[in-house]
Design a protein around this nucleic acid. Structure first.
Length: 861
RNA sequence: GCGGGCGUGGCGGAAUUGGUAGACGCAAGGGACUUAAAAUCCCUCGGUCCGAAAGGACCGUGCCGGUUCGACCCCGGCCGCCCGCACCA
């Protein structure tokens, strides 16, 4: 009897897989009749090192990839690097390293770590988005978008740090201040590049309906994000328009039926009207500035205390020219949504009500909730936002809300004061970043010719390497020579665009590039893409539920419209799974410094650091570098092996939920690996092989076969349904059962069959152990390509089922029945049972409920 | 603040999706083996109560209410935690 030693087995089998090239995805011509499967995990940002938390995502994808391959699929399971982004620039600034060197070094380290996890990846397709051979094609796509009008320029707001003279990301704005300078953030308008995702709003919304292998929650989130709403545009004529401003305020509302409850009109603090007045109105100017200092994130704006300033202007009510309403500037009105102006109907909207109460504006109820009495109905501090019947509303009185909306719109159109309209919450995608470490936007600004695309022959526009990170502003713009070029059209001196693309652009099409990663002349080879796409199973964190996934769906369509991709329904990801995180306890020193788990030990029941000082145990949180609660993958693999890491992150918690890292849990996984090995190693050397079919087995041998076939059935189903923790539990059960059943000579053939099944079932989870077991049992070739065990339904089926017997819904007993027993048999068995009989004493049976295989419920009284 | 999700023993979770709540794992307790320890193996393990025991009763899936023969599952209201909010990836 030997112990299983991952340290020797794992590198051995990893080399064997590589030598045999078993994970190489075959091109369509080579693949023959094999069905294809594209399995993809969201590719990592090369931040430094992989920790056990990251590995869960890849382990899950790998289970699917290995399962599909064992089932005869031609599998594409690639890996790449989302390699552009802010952290590299931060490292450059903080540590004086070059972003590219830093990134490439990280990739080297992380690739090694992933390889040591034993993932079934086709490494020949590896790509990195920071590689000119990748972003060259991205630049070509951008130019195609520009030509199609999908890419365009306009001004937009950014967070501006006035001390560092730099644009700040939302995460760099802390409490309205720059994270490094501490200076209050200003909002600035900048010329920026945008992608016209809003042109696809309707299609992106409609497309969600067909994504039946996506989690409902993600579809709902995208639906809400796109945010289609029907309503009306209403024009409120200004009684006394200020000079240089329009003579009316246009408002969007979903509830034109509440127009008679209007108390005020409110515009965004940066609405053109306010800008026009700001010069003569210090209070408005101050309000505008104050609001701007909140930053540009919607969250900050929404959380801020609701405030407003009376502009002194008035507008006329569209239905009654004699009725004047005050115009306020309000910080909860977003200039980016609708028309940047609203009318306030306090009785029907909570925010409007709070605002009205705060500033003493009238509250007039105009929608009567069902069953309420019009004479006594009042609004106190809670608005009624639901549907009802209009009242206090002249020609709308008595109409149900939907009818009232229609009637109000008809009237607006008749008066030419407005019209029915649909607006969307979705905004165009701002892709300009004033940063160095991103894909350069391939255009040249010429004072004579305007915006000139870089000729395709000149792509890629590469990033310069000799950049200075000491000044905080965009190093590309600050570079002495890089931006100075001749205009491709007039040949006069001109300047390159110094903005780079949002890194979400990089990740919006990488799944397509994987189909033909080496193609030099085109982003995507259409025939390869047609074969592989859409991705059958995409795996990643829920945090990407909206942005990355929506941008990718948009990109697939924009590429289609430019002739670069042709997906049947435009959707790049047919199946999506959003996995949970790996969490870990956090630790802090007395001084509040975060400590890593390896710096903490237990002494006399309390936690201390290496020096013996007391350590505070903090909350269990998602593994992250910033809180140091990470377990490095290499250290883990060194101690336990890759299979234990994979087994652990897949067991216990359902994949969509978080799993908590505990040393005990890991030890349990490690014990299981040894127990399984002992079971396999107990088999007689040179005995029957792992593909044995022990026909005619009886007694314990039959039990052995039954257990194995039942496990094959359940594990296959669990993998198919993405319930890996259930598959793991089934495998534990099979191992427990096999250990309990006898292993005499008469059971040898059945054991060979069962162990052969077990080893293959283990494969997707603990692939190295599976290979070692397969070899030990005398299996031919590699377990990684051995056929998946197909269970015999007759063997897997239960012979009898235990059915609970309830009396009036309370469980009183249970009976053994054949799975297909009919009601008469069930009734007979139930009534014959002594405990049931005792429970029924003195009662008359009124109803007998029997659900085969599930429950018997006797209603008696 | 808005949108989405989650909540079951000491802990992670299972429950064939309206049908025996607690599979499987961890921890804990008891025992076997051992000079001893580790490793391994066996048994017990939601709570309260009745009973020497065998066994039995009641309570129990965040909280309150509802629908149903039957609710962890469906409906209404609340509480707590997590994710996203457009320049983090």
């Amino acid at each position: 009897m030997t112990r299983y030693d991952p340290k020797t087995a794992e590198p051995k089998w990893q080399a064997a897989w590589e030598d045999a090239g078993v994970f190489r995805a075959r091109d369509p011509q080579e693949a023959g009749d094999a069905p294809r499967a594209y399995v993809l995990e969201m590719f990592p940002y090369p931040s430094g090192r992989i920790h056990v938390g990251h590995s869960r995502n890849y382990a899950m994808g790998d289970v699917v990839a290995r399962f599909r391959r064992a089932n005869g699929y031609n599998v594409l399971h690639p890996m790449g690097w989302d390699a552009f982004g802010l952290p590299a620039e931060n490292a450059a600034r903080d540590r004086g390293v070059n972003p590219e060197d830093w990134t490439r070094a990280n990739i080297e380290v992380m690739r090694g770590q992933l390889k040591r996890l034993g993932l079934a990846i086709d490494w020949s397709r590896e790509l990195a988005t920071c590689d000119p051979s990748y972003y060259k094609h991205q630049q070509a796509l951008f130019l195609a978008f520009l030509e199609k009008g999908i890419a365009y320029r306009r001004t937009a707001k950014v967070n501006w740090d006035p001390v560092d003279n730099t644009v700040l990301a939302n995460e760099q704005v802390v409490d309205g201040k720059g994270w490094r300078s501490g200076a209050p953030v200003e909002t600035r308008e900048l010329e920026q590049w945008f992608l016209r995702i809003t042109a696809y709003s309707e299609e992106l919304l409609e497309g969600l309906k067909g994504l039946d292998r996506w989690p409902d929650k993600v579809r709902t989130m995208q639906e809400n994000w796109i945010g289609r709403s029907r309503g009306a545009h209403v024009r409120f004529a200004l009684s006394n328009p200020p000079e240089g401003a329009a003579d009316a305020i246009e408002v969007f509302t979903t509830r034109p039926d509440t127009l008679f409850g209007a108390a005020f009109v409110a515009v965004a603090p940066d609405h053109p009207l306010i800008k026009a007045m700001a010069a003569d109105r210090p209070d408005l100017d101050a309000f505008m500035r104050e609001t701007a200092s909140m930053g540009t994130s919607e969250e900050a704006i929404e959380r801020a205390e609701k405030k407003g300033v009376d502009t002194g202007l008035t507008v006329r009510h569209p239905f009654d020219p004699d009725w004047e309403l005050p115009v306020w500037a309000a910080n909860f009105v977003l200039s980016t949504y609708g028309t940047g102006a609203i009318f306030g109907s306090p009785a029907g909207d909570q925010r409007d009500l709070d605002f009205a109460r705060k500033y003493g504006l009238p509250v007039k109820p105009v929608v009567l909730p069902p069953g309420a009495d019009p004479a006594s109905f009042e609004i106190t501090d809670e608005a009624y936002i639901g549907p009802g019947v209009s009242f206090n509303s002249q020609f709308l009185d008595g109409l149900e809300t939907p009818k009232a909306i229609e009637a109000a719109i008809a009237k607006l159109e008749e008066l030419k004061a407005g019209e029915g309209a649909t607006t969307w919450r979705l905004r165009d995608w701002g892709v300009s970043r004033q940063r160095y470490w991103g894909c350069p936007i391939p255009v040249i600004r010429c004072s004579a010719c305007g915006i000139v695309p870089v000729p395709e022959a000149d792509l890629p526009v590469e990033l310069p390497k000799d950049v200075d990170f000491n000044s905080p502003s965009n190093p590309l713009a600050a570079h002495p020579t890089w931006k100075h070029v001749h205009c491709p059209q007039c040949n006069e001196m001109a300047e390159r665009e110094t903005d780079t693309l949002d890194t979400f652009v990089d990740s919006s099409w990488y799944y397509a590039r994987f189909c033909s990663p080496q193609a030099a002349d085109t982003p995507v080879e259409m025939d390869k893409a047609a074969y592989w796409l859409p991705v059958d199973q995409y795996v990643g964190g829920v945090e990407h539920a909206v942005l990355h996934l929506l941008y990718s769906r948009f990109f697939a369509r924009a590429m289609r419209d430019c002739g670069y991709l042709d997906l049947p329904d435009g959707e790049p990801f047919a199946g999506l799974f959003t996995q949970g995180m790996v969490t870990h306890e956090t630790y802090r020193s007395a001084a509040g410094k975060w400590l890593g788990p390896e710096e903490v030990r237990e002494a006399d029941g309390s936690l201390v650091d290496e020096a013996g000082a007391a350590v505070k145990r903090g909350a269990v949180e998602k593994m992250s570098k910033s809180k140091k609660n990470v377990v490095d993958l290499d250290a883990f693999v060194e101690e336990y092996g890759a299979d234990v890491a994979r087994w652990f992150v897949l067991s216990d918690s359902p994949p969509e939920r978080d799993v908590q890292y505990t040393t005990q849990g890991v030890e349990g996984a490690a014990r299981f690996v040894q127990r399984l090995w002992a079971l396999v190693d107990d088999h007689p050397e040179g005995g029957p092989g792992p593909l044995t079919v022990a026909d005619g087995a009886e007694g314990p041998a039959l039990e052995i076969r039954r257990a194995a076939h039942r496990a094959a059935k359940e594990v296959s189903r669990a993998i198919e349904e993405f319930r890996f923790n259930v598959a793991v539990a089934q495998l534990y059960e099979l191992v427990n059962t096999l250990r309990k059943l006898p292993s005499g000579e008469t059971e040898t053939a059945a054991r060979a069959e069962a162990l052969g099944i077990l080893v293959r079932l283990i494969g997707p989870f603990a692939p190295h152990l599976a290979e070692e077991g397969w070899a030990r049992l005398g299996g031919e070739g590699l377990a990684a390509v051995a056929p998946w065990p197909v269970h015999d339904e007759a063997l897997a089926a239960q012979q009898t089922v235990t059915v609970g017997v309830q009396i009036n819904g309370k469980k009183r007993s249970e009976v053994e029945l054949a799975p297909d027993a009919d009601e008469a048999a069930a009734k007979e068995a139930a009534l014959a049972d002594s405990r049931t009989a005792r429970g029924l004493e003195g009662l008359t049976v009124r109803k007998f409920i029997y659900v085969p295989g599930r429950i018997i419920n006797i209603v008696a009284g």
